[in-house]
């Protein structure tokens, strides 16, 4: 979040989604928070509110966080209707209170998607992403079997583009921002990262087919090219990768239809 420096403290109304557990009803609850330093991060504001709630004998707001510097992908909140809140290219933990004005009412909700069930308050279960990765998001390279790292030169442009895709932090904002709750940007990023590298070619078809079918099976929606995903993405992963994924998927489907799989090619262990 980038905004002008201000020194005046602010008071806000926090309208937070409270839900005690997975299958329980939830509702918005208002909390007043006063005299906040604008240099405090949004999550630090939640820390302060939580300590106040604790002292009042109430349960603090459960929210996911860890690195607090925009890289681990743990934090996940929809702030005023936007996944990861105001600002471009930042995660929830990189939102600062100076982005708000004195007297603001700030609505905070969990990332909402059928494939991300709510665990408690603002915390959702994103293990579906891990399952997609387990289905095919890897290059099989048993430890100890690798050739010398410089044996296979990779054009710098390809390596850089692969890195752009690999920068995904697996936060799920793309899913939360999409009206269909599609995971296409996340899957496209992973498929493109590996597909752009020579090491990733052997399993390229198998990977895209397995990841896409797992994504579908886990209840993520379809992509209808609205690109809300890349707009909300804290790493600004471009939706161009979705086009790449579609090409890869189509090609793999056709090749798969005409080329029988040899027996035992499970590619697993």
């Amino acid at each position: 979040m980038v905004a002008e420096n201000t020194t005046k403290n602010l008071s806000i109304t926090l309208r937070v989604w409270r839900q005690a557990g997975p299958n329980q009803p939830g509702k918005f609850v208002d909390y007043q928070s006063k005299d906040l330093n604008p240099n405090m991060s949004f999550l630090e504001m939640l820390d302060v509110v939580n300590d106040e709630l604790t002292l009042k004998g109430e349960e603090p707001i459960a929210f996911a966080h860890d690195c607090r510097e925009g890289i681990c992908g743990t934090c996940s909140a929809t702030i005023n209707g936007k996944a990861h809140g105001p600002g471009k290219g930042v995660a929830t933990c990189q939102v600062y209170m100076r982005a708000f004005r004195d007297g603001d009412v700030i609505t905070v909700e969990p990332f909402r998607a059928a494939a991300f069930p709510i665990i408690k308050d603002l915390i959702v279960d994103r293990s579906a992403f891990d399952k997609i990765q387990q289905a095919g998001g890897f290059i099989t390279a048993r430890t100890g079997s690798a050739p010398d790292a410089n044996a296979l030169p990779v054009p710098k442009g390809d390596a850089d583009l692969a890195m752009d895709a690999a920068a995904c932090i697996g936060c799920g904002a793309c899913v939360a921002a999409c009206k269909n709750a599609s995971a296409m940007l996340f899957v496209a990023a992973k498929v493109s990262h590996f597909g752009l590298l020579p090491q990733g070619q052997a399993e390229r078809d198998r990977r895209v087919l397995a990841m896409v079918s797992t994504m579908d099976a886990l209840g993520f929606g379809n992509c209808t090219n609205q690109y809300e995903c890349s707009a909300a993405c804290p790493k600004l992963i471009t939706h161009d990768f979705i086009a790449r994924l579609n090409r890869d998927y189509l090609g793999a489907t056709i090749r798969h239809a005409f080329k029988p799989e040899p027996a035992g090619a499970d590619g697993g262990t």
Binding site: A146, A149, A162
Partner: peptide, 14 residues
């Protein structure tokens, strides 16, 4: 380094 490159770690290149 060999292992990581084989896995597709996109290290900086010349």
């Amino acid at each position: 380094i060999d292992q990581c490159v084989a896995q597709g770690v996109p290290f900086a290149r010349e």
